[in-house]
Design a protein around this nucleic acid. Structure first.
Length: 223
DNA sequence: GCATGATCATTA
DNA sequence: TAATGATCATGC
């Protein structure tokens, strides 16, 4: 009995509150699925389990998890101190046909417009079954956060547009980074070469660095 | 290959 | 030991 999609932001948040403090074993049992021994071959398992419980309806469609509400769901692994253990994938980084793109209308900005963050106490030493759901955070970027992301985005997009995509590393950008996003390192997609001609390159995605997501997690404490 | 969901594991 | 670069599952 998968929950129906929530009809309002409040209803979604209340559902998220209701499952905070529960273990992944409890959520898995309620959903009628088995808990994998590790996430080695089930890296998206936790996220999909939470989608089930909260009634996300988008499936694998390129739309927000809660389509009618325009809200994206993100689980984020944290340690006992509340610090993020991993960066957060947002969306693919466009590598061609990017002239004229603006931050205002970029897919990444739209995707981050409203996000329900669900921390998961997920230190590697903790068995998957014993990992605990944290308190949810319903978030939209502050003006400062938006400016910070825009600055990194413009730097990264400039490099892509100028044919410097192969000079981008995970170190580029203060809060937003670009890293590989592919099944393996032999996957190729089109990009812009140093001479302006098309070249094959590894597909890449935008990721929020831990220093950015940590601020989001801390804001709830201060507000 | 690209979109969804991310974490793994080697390197620095 | 944290961060970077690589990788895993699934559907179309």
């Amino acid at each position: 009995m998968k929950p129906l999609p929530p009809q309002s932001e409040l209803e979604l948040f209340e559902r998220a509150q209701a499952i905070s403090g529960l273990s992944l074993a409890q959520l898995a049992q309620a959903a009628g699925v088995d808990v994998p021994k590790n996430l080695n071959r089930d890296k998206g398992w936790t996220g999909q389990l939470l989608e089930w419980h909260l009634g996300a309806d988008a499936g694998s469609k390129p739309v927000p998890d809660f389509e009618d509400l325009g809200i994206e769901l993100k689980t984020i692994p944290i340690d006992i101190h509340g610090k993020p253990l991993e960066t957060t994938y947002v969306c693919v980084a466009p590598l061609t046909n990017i002239t004229g793109q603006t931050w205002q209308s970029s897919p990444i900005r739209i995707k981050l417009n409203r996000v329900l963050w669900i921390p998961i106490l997920a230190e590697r030493q903790i068995p998957v079954t014993d990992r605990i759901i944290g308190y949810p955070i319903l978030w939209s970027p502050s003006e400062e956060e938006d400016r910070n992301l825009q600055a990194d985005w413009e730097e990264l997009m400039d490099m892509i547009a100028l044919g410097r995509v192969n000079q981008i590393t995970a170190k580029t950008g203060e809060y937003l980074q670009i890293r590989p996003k592919a099944a393996h390192s032999r996957i190729k997609t089109a990009g812009i070469g140093h001479d302006g001609k098309m070249v094959e390159t590894l597909p890449k995605g935008f990721y929020l660095k831990k220093n950015f997501t940590q601020k989001i997690l801390l804001n709830i404490v201060n507000s």
